[in-house]
Design a protein around this nucleic acid. Sequence first.
DNA 1: CTTGTAATCAACCAAATGGTTGATCAATGA
DNA 2: TCATTGATCAACCATTTGGTTGATTACAAG
Lengths: 136, 136
Amino acid sequence: MIVDPSADDRLDRAFMALADPVRRRIIARLSRGPATVNELADPFEISKQAVSKHIQVLEHAGLVTRTRDAQRRPVHLDPAALEALTAWIDRYRLIHEQQFRSLDSLLAESTTAEASSEASDPAVGEAGRRTEEERS
Amino acid sequence: MIVDPSADDRLDRAFMALADPVRRRIIARLSRGPATVNELADPFEISKQAVSKHIQVLEHAGLVTRTRDAQRRPVHLDPAALEALTAWIDRYRLIHEQQFRSLDSLLAESTTAEASSEASDPAVGEAGRRTEEERS
DNA sequence: CTTGTAATCAACCAAATGGTTGATCAATGA
DNA sequence: TCATTGATCAACCATTTGGTTGATTACAAG
């Protein structure tokens, strides 16, 4: 019954939560404003209990929060968690682009002068880069 | 042998692919440049076959591509697919923010005389929003 | 107190997921 | 040719996931 509130684990649950198309539709609906479980369940063919479970997954992932209004439990979107996801994706996407950029400049330099600056060269990627250029 | 038709289905697979922490680590590694299956499998405790399966999932989701170099099959990151993911997330995140913005301006209008509101409690304002229902 | 409504809990089930091991394919190099 | 290396295929297994139905809790209104 470990509750493991690790930040990395949160990211894990968030990605996991968005993996399901039903939950993504719920997120999409919530972006227009809060809604109750019944309202959220309405567009789906599945049972209300199933939707309730989906909401629990989203809540546990930190993507939504819930308040109380009499018997109702309105669900609210928490955009901060979504931001963390885009941050993760963009991180590696941008590193990848950066990698290409430095390769380009490296090639440009080698034409102008001697390529003595092998230096650090963490670019295992560079070595691998060469192996590409294949048929498409 | 259906070959992944709809674009919506692609998004589905992409989110599903990123739900697994092993696959996200693979993506992180690939952001530094292409790598072979053996290279990718090295940091993990799991078998090479398991990593191979993960790569197939990523490939089927359009997140990576593979080329050929002798026996090796280098895996390359495809940043375009990652961009599609951030696009989806940002869409609803921004709609949500927009919603807040209009709520704020609405409140601001009602108190044109003075800008006393310190953003107050938007959650309460939202709760009243459940008037927008689509119970059919 | 009783009824009705919103939502969750509990037990259960089928299918998908992630992992394993052993065999096989494909390309290289002796 | 034959052994080696890189990677996949195939069968199998344990756990997780997403769904169901039926009972139960929590409020609000008669």
